[in-house]
Amino acid sequence: MVWLPLDTWIVVIGALCAMACALPGCFLVLRKMSMMGDAISHAVLPGLAIAFLVTGSRASFGMFIGAAIVGVITAVFTQWISSFGKVDRGASMGIVFTTLFALGLLLIVQAADHVDLDPGCVLYGAIELTPLDTTMTIGRLAIPRAAVVLATVLLINMAIIISFFKELQISAFDPALATTMGINATLMHYLLMSMVAVTTVASFEAVGSIIVIAMLIAPAATAYLLTDRLSVMLVISAVAAILSSALGHLSALTVPRLFGFESTNTSGMMAGATGLLFGFAWILAPRYGLLSRWFHRKNLLAEDPTVTGE
């Protein structure tokens, strides 16, 4: 195995992307809206396609705007269908995102002649190629465009979460309470949705629109098993994000060789690594892990209930 500067960049970009996703992801998991992340990341496709059609390039600011709008539209339509039509929330989400995805696919097919846009790239990205596209240089160091974009999004996400920490926390815990306290829970909801949408767009080039869901949910769910405090959860999820990026790239370099293959898709491996970390937490978490629960259950039965019950 040879480690090149390129590999470092891949890990850095992966880590930036995973961290940028994990932060809003924590709120998605806490608000029991993880599937909204799934829905939005599928549904931004038409937003991207329209932005491509209009601007003709992949790296435009308009793309973020388009994605944020479609993200909010997904949330709004889901809300409408489930409240006006009295349709189960999951089902209305499914209807909205599959329809938007289908529209996006139709648009992309129409645009394929004009713009170099491969649906495959949108779905699972090409993180291996991102370090080659550099825009900025600091000293003698050429920084890839993806790293700049993802770092910016990460900073924005951090800034939003730090400045609206209480508001987001209360809206996640109890939207009704938040409203009575003068916090606009609906606004917070859509703020979160736009954050998810923008992050998804920033990440899709690196990891694709489906693997980004792993980045949104898995580190947050891992952290959720390890702590009871929101601030700690945010930190742990960021750490899990970095770990899974490094672990993912390492295994992308080593695992295929074990089976006699040449190489593989790095972002897929990163998603696998987030799952692996979750698996560890699932079994080993100090309080909520399978092992600790099992021990506790045994202890509970071993105690004499009549003594402890009084």
Partner: peptide, 12 residues
């Protein structure tokens, strides 16, 4: 969400 994305990732 976790299962679908992680398994899709592994699939990719």
């Amino acid at each position: 969400g976790l299962v679908l994305s992680v398994m899709f990732g592994i699939g990719v």
